[in-house]
């Protein structure tokens, strides 16, 4: 398939991918400085999937994200300042410091939430898709899940239900090859293609590190889902370049394997396309990089200066009021 994306769109996607990458790199630094606690999962190496798929959605479409969800949120219109403020647990964060990295959400932006429970979001996606249909809108829901989640009961219950009811759900399978330390060949029997077929759901598989391949495949898939034909399963193969968490010694894989995937870096791939197609010069690329880095630096400063939530805020937001 030699279809080429429009140059302007490719530049736009490149910038969003950089924004995600630099955001994640900033978190690495903040973690090393001891400014972030808990579990923060980075999506370095997986940027092309979030950008390629979500870039095709309408503002009112829904995404349901995962514990490795910063890229999904930024691609859906999430802003760097409230993202980083949330990850630092600050008052200006998307969740006022109550959610953190694993629970970033914005109903307004159509992100029904990252999720700390592997597979926890799949049933929610079935519900938002059902809701869209009952409200007679053409909204679709894209639910991201990984190779780890693919073996949870929730995933199977949700695929069955979505297919049975022909709901507008795109099951976006991000195969980054590792569920914490367990490589997919040691966790998954059969294949996602066969599983999708078992539920009568059409399936496609693409190179998740190639933003163009993701874009063109997702275009067809989204059209199918939005047209009322029921769900679709799209598998994007990628690689989790970082450990599962910060400080993961990664004894379960070789550095040679990591280096092999580093050559397939989705951002370097786009830069190569820019050169091949004479879209941008090296200087222009450097200037774009510097611009995005400045945005991220500015957002880090904002987040670090944001105030701590008030102590008595622990008691708010547990319940909506009732009479």
């Amino acid at each position: 398939m030699n279809r080429q994306m429009d140059a302007e769109l490719l530049i736009d996607h490149f910038q969003t991918m950089l924004r995600i990458r630099f955001h994640e790199e900033a978190i690495k630094k903040l973690f090393a400085q001891g400014k972030i606690g808990g579990s923060t999962h980075l999506c370095i190496g997986q940027e092309a999937i979030a950008v390629g798929v979500i870039g095709l959605l309408k503002k009112e479409d829904y995404i349901v994200s995962t514990h490795r969800g910063h890229g999904h949120m930024l691609a859906k219109g999430g802003q760097l300042k409230p993202m980083l403020a949330e990850i630092l647990g600050k008052n200006d964060g998307y969740c006022k410091g109550k959610g953190g990295s694993m629970h970033i959400a914005s109903i307004e932006l159509g992100n029904l939430g990252a999720n700390g429970i592997v597979s926890g979001g799949l049933p929610i996606a079935v519900g938002s898709a059902l809701s869209a249909r009952m409200r007679k809108t053409d909204q679709i829901t894209v639910v991201f899940f990984g190779d780890g989640a693919s073996n949870e009961g929730n995933t199977h219950e949700s695929m069955n239900l979505a297919s049975l009811w022909k709901l507008p759900v795109l099951f976006l399978f991000e195969n980054n090859h590792y569920a914490v330390s367990t490589e997919i060949s040691r966790s998954m029997a059969g294949s996602m293609a066969k599983r999708a077929a078992g539920y009568d759901i059409p399936f496609t598989e693409v190179d998740g590190n190639d933003v163009e391949a993701v874009h063109f495949a997702a275009e067809e898939v989204i059209d199918h889902v939005r047209s009322g034909n029921g769900p679709f399963v799209m598998q994007c193969n990628t690689y989790r370049m970082e450990g599962h968490y910060f400080g993961d010694a990664m004894v379960y894989r070789t550095s040679a394997e990591v280096e092999e995937w580093r050559k397939k870096d989705p951002i370097l791939h786009v830069e190569q396309l820019f050169r091949e197609r004479s879209i941008l010069t090296a200087d222009e690329i450097a200037s774009l990089r510097a611009g995005i880095q400045a945005e991220v630096d500015d957002a880090v400063a904002f987040a670090e200066n944001s105030s701590q939530p008030a102590l008595d805020s622990i008691f708010s937001d547990v319940y909506s009021e009732w009479q």
Partner: peptide, 21 residues
């Protein structure tokens, strides 16, 4: 009527409730 899928039934309820139902 739903299949026997308690987790998906309640989770779908959450998703529908979050989005206006």
């Amino acid at each position: 009527d739903t299949p026997i899928s308690e987790s998906a039934i309640v989770g779908a309820g959450v998703g529908a409730a979050l989005t206006g139902m």
